[in-house]
Amino acid sequence: MMVMANANAQAAKVRRMCNLYHVSSKQEIERHFRLIVAAGAALPEGTGVAVGPFGQGVMIRANAAGERQAVAGQWGMIAPHALQPRPASRAILTNNARIESVAERPTYRDAWALGRRCLIPAQSYQEPNWETGRNIWWQLRRADGAPWALAGIWSEWVNPNTGELLPNYSMLTMNCDGHPLLSRLHKPDPQLPADAQDKRSAIPIAAEHWDAWLRAPLTEAQALLRRPPADLFDPAVTQVTDELLARLRRDPGPTQGSLI
C-alpha cells in the first residue's frame, strides 16, 4: 500500500502544471487585446510582473454587453462554499484545471457549466525541463513577441466574513505527450512508459478565436482547445538546455554536477 501511495504522489508531481507566469502590463493588455478595464481593477503598470499560485493576476472575460473586459483577480479558483480564499493546505493548488476533468471537479464544474471562460494575458509562463538531469526553467514566450492569451475559467467568490467580492480564475491544461517541444518539459516518471507520461500544456487561444472562446456555446468553445504548434514558441527557449545536452554528449563524465 505504501508503494502505491508513493507512486501516486510521484505521478501527481509529474502532472503538476504551470505555477509561475509573467503577466502583461496594463498598457500592453489594453493595446493588444483592444478592451476596456473594469472599474477599480488594479492592473499591473510594470512589465513582466510575476504571478504565482493564489497571487494577484489579470483575466479577460466578456462583460454583460459582450465586450472584452480586463479584471484583476486571484490566480487560483476558490471552491463555491469555501470559507477562505485559498485552501488551508499548501499542497492543494487550484491555479490549473485539467480539461479532462473540469466538468466534474467541484471547484471548477459550476464555472465550466455556466460558460465562465476567460483569457489569461501573459508575457511568458514557466515550466521545468529535466533532460540534463537537473531542472532548467524554460520561460515560454511567443516567437512573434506578442503576449499569450491562455485559456482559463473564472468565478467570483464572496467572503462570508467581509462581504468582499473576489474574482478568481484557473488556467486550463491539456495533455501534450508527443508534442515536439512541450513533451520535453516536466520531470518524467520512471515508473510510466514514455507515451503515457501525461505531460501537461497551457492552451493558447488564437486572436481570431478570442471572442468565440469567451462567448460561444460550450461545444464550439471546446473545439478551440488544441495543442499549440511548436513554431508558435520563441526558439531561443531551448538554447541553454540544448547547449548543456550537447556538452554532456561530448563529455558524459562526472562534471555534470557543475554544469548548472
Rank of each mutant, 00 (worst) to 15 (best):
R109Q: 07
R109T: 04
D110Q: 15
A111L: 05
L114H: 11
L114F: 05
L114M: 13
L114V: 01
L114R: 15
R117S: 03
R117A: 00
C118Q: 00
L119R: 04
L119S: 04
I120K: 00
I120C: 00
S124A: 14
Q126H: 14
P128V: 10
N129G: 00
N129R: 04
W130K: 05
W130G: 05
T132P: 00
T132C: 05
R134S: 12
R134C: 08
N135V: 13
I136R: 12
W137E: 11
W137D: 14
W138Q: 11
R141I: 03
R141M: 10
R141P: 05
R142T: 01
R142L: 02
R142W: 03
A143W: 13
A143Q: 15
D144C: 12
D144H: 07
G145S: 12
A146H: 07
P147F: 01
P147A: 08
W148I: 02
A149K: 01
L150W: 06
L150H: 11
A151R: 07
W154D: 00
W154F: 14
W157V: 05
V158A: 07
N159K: 14
N161T: 06
T162H: 05
G163A: 00
E164Y: 07
E164L: 10
L166H: 09
P167A: 12
N168I: 02
S170L: 05
M171Y: 00
M171N: 02
M174D: 02
